[in-house]
Simulated assay, not measured.
Amino acid sequence: MIYTVTFNPAIDYVVRLDRPLEAGAINRSAGEDCVLGGKGINVSGVLAQLDCPSVALGFVAGETGAWLERGLAAQGLHTEFIHLPAGMTRINVKIKAGQETELNGAGPVIPPQAMEALFQQLDKLQAGDILVLAGSIPASLQPDTYEKILTRLQGHGVQSVVDASGALLAGVLAYHPFLIKPNHHELAEIVGRPLQGDDQITGAARELQERGACNVLVSMAGDGALLLDADGGVHRIGTPRGTVINSVGAGDSMLAGFLAGYLRTGSYETALRLGTACGSATAFSLGLATRQEIDRLLAQL
């Protein structure tokens, strides 16, 4: 079973304007949507489109948390969220008016007893299960939270997948994650130098592999992706044709597609193709990728 963890889920209130945003004035919406998400939840959502079951773990609070939980259940996602005693699940306001303006909520405080409840959930994971840790750590938690989770799971036979940046990603390498997914900018930040071209990106990915990562999947937006697999093989892929509408969740979608493809076939090339199709399908859509769009783009690769 695949388990995803989202520490700080969100309801994204997306507002579209037909003219530029004017500060200090009344702006009237030309349309709006509510998108339920968070990086781990996005992974679970795309896995569901691929008929690959998962369990979404994390924390919710207040009426907004109850709304998010009900909405995900209506989408067919299996969730086992921990309910926090205070606060509310955050709402992020995203204004699309030519260029995008975001106002992201802080989210609720996660007390120690809630973290202990998550640890107890994770203690039930079994050999062969996959745990996806995606996104940043809320300010109410220690910055080594990912490391504490992976320390607790050592010896359980659970494979970890980490999509994070900076010190958060660097800190988990010693735990030999099955897969990490930095983008090319995050990869450059970790190795401490600018990267240009496939050779330099491959070299930097190999450094992270030497520090403990098994597979390194580097997303490069419109330039596609590069995978350095656990056997030392290098796989490169471009992107299908399409117009980018919204890049939010594209990386999470790529991660979901890669996992689903690899679990089904054991082929890194197949996993990379499906991951690329899923990431592009989300980038070319207002929301997360749908199965129909994934299949259409997969045929182009």
Rank of each mutant, 00 (worst) to 15 (best):
L227V: 09
G171S: 14
A106K: 14
F81M: 13
Q200D: 13
L150R: 06
T276G: 03
G38M: 03
G257R: 06
G166Y: 13
G62L: 03
T151S: 12
I237V: 11
K94W: 09
E63R: 12
I110D: 00
Y268L: 05
H235S: 09
Q121K: 15
V43A: 08
A170M: 00
A74P: 02
D252Q: 08
F258R: 11
G155Q: 02
A134Y: 02
F178L: 14
K94I: 10
D129K: 09
Y268Q: 10
E147P: 03
A174W: 00
G107T: 09
T145G: 06
Y3P: 00
S267A: 07
V55G: 05
G24M: 12
A260K: 03
V162F: 11
N215P: 13
M88I: 01
L131D: 07
L84Y: 00
A61F: 03
T282E: 07
G40A: 06
K39M: 06
G192R: 11
G40T: 06
P20F: 09
I95E: 12
D144M: 05
L288K: 07
G31T: 13
C52A: 11
H235N: 08
L227D: 13
V15I: 15
G275K: 07
I149S: 06
Y262D: 12
I149N: 02
G107W: 01
T79H: 04
V248W: 01
V46T: 13
Q99R: 12
F7V: 11
K124A: 13
I201L: 08
Y262A: 11
S44N: 12
C52I: 00
P53H: 10
I110R: 00
H78A: 10
P111H: 05
L297M: 14
A23N: 10
A86R: 15
I137V: 14
Q292H: 12
S29Q: 12
T282P: 13
G203F: 04
E207P: 01
G65L: 01
L195M: 10
N246L: 07
V234G: 05
V161Q: 05
A188G: 07
L173W: 04
S253V: 08
A97I: 08
L217R: 04
V216G: 04
I149F: 04
R28C: 07
T4Y: 02
R28H: 14
D199T: 14
L288H: 11
S160Q: 08
L118A: 02
L301F: 00
A167E: 15
T270Q: 15
D144S: 12
L50R: 03
Q121F: 00
P85R: 06
Q120M: 09
L208Y: 04
A23G: 15
L21V: 14
P182C: 07
R211T: 00
A73E: 10
S165V: 09
H176G: 02
T4F: 04
I130H: 04
C214W: 06
V216M: 03
L179Y: 10
E269Q: 15
E116H: 01
L36D: 02
G87Y: 01
A256P: 09
I237G: 12
G266S: 11
G87W: 00
Q113H: 05
A188K: 09
Y262V: 10
L150A: 05
H184M: 08
Q121T: 02
A74L: 14
